[in-house]
C-alpha cells in the first residue's frame, strides 16, 4: 500500500500547531543559538584567561587554524580512527550478523552476548580495555604474549590511536550486527531457495543475493556510525588523553583541549565550525537516504 506522509489525516482537521510548537521551538533554539554563538566566537579574539583580549578579528582564527600543524595532525587522526572503525565494525558486524542468522542451539543467547558491548558506557569500556586487557604488565594480553613468547606490547604507548580504535570498534560492532541482522531477517527466503535450486551456493549466494539485499543497510550503518564516530571523546579522555604527544589527538579532543584547558575560545570555536562542516557533509547524504524512506 502506498502511503504518503503528507496526504492522509485521520478525522477532523485539528490544529496541530500547539502540539508541534514545543518541539519545534525547543529544537530551533537548540540548533540556532549555539551555532550562531560558535560562528560569532570563531571571529573573536576571546580568551577566558585574558579578559582584556577581545574584539572582532574576522577570519584570523581560521588563518591560525589552517597554518597550525596540530589541526592537520588531528584531522589525519580523526580520519584514520573513523575509517578504521567503520571498516572493522562493518566487516566483523556482517560476520556476526550472518553467523547469528543461522539456526543453532542457543542462538537467542548468543545474540544477546554479541550486542551487549553497545550498551556499555564508553568510560567503562575504555577502562576495562585499558586496564584489565591492555595493561602492559598486569593485563591479560600481556600475559598471553609472555606465555607465547611474543614481545609484550604497551598498547597505549606504542599504538595509541590503534588501541583507541579497537575499543571504539568493539562498541560499534554490535550496532552494525543488530542492524544488518534485522535486515538479513527480512531477506526473502523463497528467493534464496530459488537461487539455491539453480545451483548457487555458499559465497556465490552471498555475493549475488545477500550482499545486494544488505547494500542499503550497510550504507545506513556507515553514515550513522560516521556521525557518532566524528565525536568520539570519552574513550580518548580516559585512556591516552590525546597522547603520547598528540599521537591520539582527534579533532574533538583538540577542540576540547584548546577550549577547556587553554581557554582559547576563539580558536576552539573555529575548530568547532570545522567539525560541524565535516559532520554535515555526511549528514547531508544520510538525511537524503532516510527521507527517501518516508515516501515509501
Amino acid at each position: 500500500m502506498q502511503r504518503n506522509a503528507s496526504t492522509d489525516s485521520i478525522g477532523p482537521m485539528i490544529s496541530t500547531r500547539p502540539l508541534l510548537a514545543p518541539s519545534v521551538i525547543l529544537l530551533l533554539i537548540w540548533m540556532i543559538v549555539p551555532l550562531a554563538l560558535t560562528l560569532w566566537f570563531s571571529m573573536q579574539r576571546y580568551s577566558l584567561l585574558d579578559a582584556s583580549a577581545g574584539g572582532f578579528v574576522g577570519f584570523r582564527n581560521y588563518v591560525f587554524l589552517f597554518t597550525d600543524p596540530n589541526l592537520f595532525n588531528a584531522l589525519a587522526n580523526t580520519i584514520f580512527l573513523v575509517a578504521g572503525v567503520l571498516v572493522a565494525s562493518v566487516v566483523i558486524g556482517l560476520a556476526c550478523a550472518v553467523a547469528l542468522d543461522q539456526q543453532f542451539p542457543g542462538r537467542g543467547i548468543a545474540r544477546l552476548l554479541c550486542i551487549a558491548p553497545f550498551f556499555v558506557m564508553p568510560t567503562v569500556s575504555a577502562l576495562i580495555w585499558k586496564n584489565l586487557l591492555m595493561h602492559p604488565v598486569n593485563g591479560l594480553f600481556a600475559y598471553i604474549s609472555r606465555t607465547l613468547g611474543l614481545p609484550v606490547v604497551d598498547w597505549f604507548a606504542q599504538w595509541p590511536l590503534f588501541s583507541v580504535g579497537v575499543i571504539v570498534a568493539w562498541q560499534w560492532i554490535p550496532f552494525a550486527t543488530l542492524i544488518l541482522l534485522t535486515s538479513l531477517q527480512s531477506l526473502d527466503r523463497d528467493q534464496v531457495e530459488a537461487a539455491r535450486m539453480d545451483g548457487a551456493k555458499g559465497l556465490r549466494l552471498f555475493r549475488f543475493i545477500t550482499l545486494p539485499h544488505l547494500a542499503r543497510s550497510i550504507t545506513i550503518v556507515v553514515m550513522i556510525e560516521t556521525i557518532f564516530l566524528l565525536s568520539v571523546f570519552a574513550e580518548i579522555f580516559v585512556t591516552t588523553a590525546g597522547g603520547p604527544g598528540n599521537a591520539s589527538t582527534t579533532l574533538p579532543f583538540l577542540i576540547y583541549k584548546v577550549a577547556l584547558l587553554d581557554y582559547n575560545v576563539g580558536w576552539a570555536s573555529a575548530g568547532g565550525v570545522i567539525a560541524i562542516i565535516l559532520a554535515n557533509i555526511v549528514a547531508y547524504f544520510l538525511v537524503r537516504t532516510i527521507s527517501h524512506n518516508l515516501d515509501r
Binding site: 529544537l27 537548540w30 540548533m31 543559538v33 549555539p34 551555532l35 554563538l37 560558535t38 566566537f41 556521525i227 566524528l230 565525536s231 571523546f233 579533532l251 574533538p252 577542540i255 576540547y256 577550549a259 577547556l260 575560545v265 576552539a268 570555536s269 568547532g272 565550525v273 567539525a275 560541524i276 565535516l278 559532520a279 554535515n280 555526511v282 549528514a283 544520510l286 538525511v287 532516510i290 527521507s291
Partner: peptide, 14 residues
C-alpha cells in the same frame, strides 16, 4: 533529524 547531526564538540564552547 538534521538537528541530531550537530557534533557535540562543535557547540562545546557556547
Amino acid at each position: 533529524l538534521s538537528t541530531k547531526m550537530m557534533p557535540a564538540v562543535g557547540v562545546l564552547v557556547p
